[in-house]
Amino acid sequence: MHPDDQIDQKLTPQQPASLSAEGASSVRMIGRHRAAVPPRRGVRALLGSTPVRVALATGVTCCLGAAAVASAPDTDEVPTAQVAEAVADRALADDVASRALERSAAPTPASPSPSASPTVSPSASPTAKPSASPTPKKTPAKPSRPTPVAGLTQAQMDNAKVIVDVGVDLKLPRQGLVVAVATAMQESTLLNYASGVLPESQDYPHQAIGWDHDSVGLFQQRPSSGWGTVRDLMRPAYAAQAFYEALLEVPGWQEMSLTLAAQAVQISAYPYAYAQHEERAATVVAALT
């Protein structure tokens, strides 16, 4: 015992007598590369059961305080060093495990570099010019008025077109169209006539005034003969339809000559006058169909 020990220290019977010899080592290194040491024993087996040994073990384990080491007897130097070494190994193992855990963690995605230029979609480029949509081809509009042929004026050609259009709507053959145009050429020279005898007829659009009884319109149809009202007969489309309906009632009109077919409808005092207009009428129909 050292003189400054406050508590009587005795070795327990279980403690080996050669304890200091076991702990004696000419070379000791810290870490994994230190020299081999004897198998470690339990802390209680190395220090014994006395309060002083317990205090020394606790001090070494916690902070390796110099005061605790200084109070230990010379015979306890080796066990104290072994305990310190064990504590250092434990701390080293804990530190390695902690750093290993940090290294095994998933890496945080790196923030994009400020110098990296962002990817710009081609469509979002401010310099990109919008593609010009193809200009649809304009269909040329049909002329509102037909071009005059066969020596007709524009007004005459317009009236001939009305006659042909009505016949086409009624699905008449080409021959019927020529008969109707030739008849209007003879009766009114393809002008919409009002009557001087019927002042009412002059209240409607007209292009000339005639004096042949109460005959009016393109076909010089008489209201008194049942062709229709003055108002209706002054409309070229109505007058043409009235003529076609009467022509369709003539039996075998398609086998007749133009002049006979026209006369069967008109009952004119000059039945052969219509034939002179057949060629010109055919030219006009060809231009309008």
Score class of each variant (00 low, 15 high):
A141Q: 13
R99G: 11
K137Q: 11
A184Y: 13
V181I: 15
A132T: 08
E77S: 07
L177N: 07
P109S: 11
P126T: 04
T75F: 06
M157A: 14
K171Q: 12
T189P: 01
S188G: 12
T127V: 09
A141S: 14
L172E: 13
L101Y: 13
P173Y: 09
L92W: 15
Q82R: 14
A180T: 08
V166N: 04
A132F: 04
S104Y: 09
P143G: 02
P73Q: 10
R90W: 12
T153Y: 01
D94T: 00
D158Y: 01
A150M: 11
A106S: 14
Q156C: 03
D94S: 02
A180K: 07
T75D: 06
S117V: 15
G196D: 14
A116Q: 03
A97H: 14
P114G: 05
K142A: 08
L101K: 14
S104V: 12
G167N: 07
V83I: 08
V162Q: 07
A150K: 08
S144M: 00
V149C: 03
A128F: 01
A84R: 06
V181M: 07
A182G: 09
L152R: 05
P143S: 07
L190Q: 04
E187M: 07
A100Q: 15
V166W: 02
V149A: 04
S133K: 10
G167E: 05
P134A: 13
V166M: 05
Q82Y: 07
V168A: 04
S117E: 12
V83G: 02
L152C: 09
S98H: 10
K171R: 11
Q175N: 04
P146C: 00
M185S: 06
D89S: 11
T108G: 05
T135Y: 00
A91F: 13
S117D: 12
A160W: 03
K137W: 00
T139I: 10
R174V: 06
P112Q: 08
A91D: 15
E102I: 14
T127E: 12
V181Y: 02
P173G: 06
A106F: 10
S117L: 15
L170H: 05
T153K: 03
Y193F: 10
L191R: 15
D95S: 08
A93Y: 15
Y193N: 02
D95P: 00
Q175C: 00
S115A: 07
P146M: 02
L191I: 05
P134D: 04
V87N: 04
S121Q: 10
D94H: 01
G196V: 13
K137S: 09
P130I: 03
S98T: 11
E187A: 09
G151D: 09
L172P: 02
T75M: 03
K161T: 02
E77A: 13
A86R: 13
I163G: 01
V197R: 08
A88K: 00
Y193P: 00
D74F: 03
A116C: 00
L198G: 02
V120R: 13
T183M: 11
P199C: 00
A91E: 14
S123N: 07
T139H: 04
D76V: 06
P136Q: 08
R145F: 02
S121E: 12
V78C: 02
A84H: 06
P134W: 01
Y193G: 00
T139D: 03
T183L: 13
Q156T: 05
V149Y: 02
E77P: 00
S121D: 15
D158S: 06
A182M: 11
T147K: 15
A132P: 04
A110T: 13
A132V: 13
